Amino acid sequence: MKTLQKYKNEQMKNPEFAKAYEEIQPEMNVIRAIVDARALRNMTQKELSEKTGIAQTEISKLEKGTRNPSIKLLQRLADGMDMVLKISFVPKERA
């Protein structure tokens, strides 16, 4: 049985797949950051919803990647988790 990592590595050899994968990374990083921050605070989506006034269904959509958050929404999430929102630009890695 092939592992997910092996499958990904094989697919990354396809230029079209690699391009699409790289294009989606910023969104995936935001999703990962939201989920990781909430987990770090041991909060459920419902608890975060109660603290922020953002519907639990909206938080779920953010974490599934079916809704793109505004900076204002990200700030509300950060405040609800007693965290600071930090956005940065970093140089691209050269291969």
Rank of each mutant, 00 (worst) to 15 (best):
Q5T: 03
A18V: 02
V84I: 04
K19C: 07
L73T: 12
L77T: 01
D79R: 13
S60F: 04
Q56T: 07
L40V: 08
V35S: 09
D79T: 11
K8I: 07
K2T: 10
K6F: 07
R41E: 02
K13W: 13
S49D: 10
E27K: 10
F89W: 15
F17H: 10
P69F: 03
E50K: 11
A33I: 00
D82R: 13
A39Y: 13
T44M: 08
N29C: 05
A78N: 08
E58P: 06
A37W: 02
G65T: 06
L48P: 02
I54K: 02
S49H: 08
E47G: 07
E93A: 06
M28I: 09
Q45L: 13
M83Q: 11
K92F: 02
L74F: 02
I31D: 01
N42Y: 14
E16G: 01
K2H: 12
N42L: 15
R76W: 01
A37V: 05
Q5Y: 04
E22M: 14
P15R: 03
R32W: 14
S88N: 08
Q75R: 15
N68G: 06
P91Y: 12
E22I: 10
P15M: 05
R38Q: 06
L48C: 02
I24G: 11
M1G: 12
I24V: 12
M81H: 03
I87T: 02
G65F: 07
T44S: 10
E23L: 07
S49L: 11
N14W: 01
T44F: 02
L4K: 15
D79H: 03
Q25V: 14
K64V: 05
G80S: 00
I34L: 13
V84G: 03
Q45W: 11
A95N: 13
E16F: 04
E16T: 00
M43K: 03
A33C: 01
E27F: 09
A33M: 03
R76K: 10
T44W: 06
N14R: 04
Y21C: 04
Q45E: 14
P91I: 06
K61I: 00
M1W: 09
T57F: 01
V84E: 15
T3Q: 08
A39M: 14
A95P: 13
L73H: 03
Q45R: 10
L77P: 00
Q5H: 07
E50W: 07
T57H: 08
E10L: 10
K72D: 14
M28Y: 12
P91D: 14
V90W: 01
T66E: 15
I71S: 06
I34C: 01
S70I: 07
K86N: 15
M43T: 05
L48S: 00
I59E: 03
L40A: 05
S70M: 08
G65V: 09
P91Q: 13
Q11D: 00
E47A: 04
N14D: 05
E58R: 10
A37G: 05
L74I: 12
R67H: 08
A39K: 15
T52K: 07
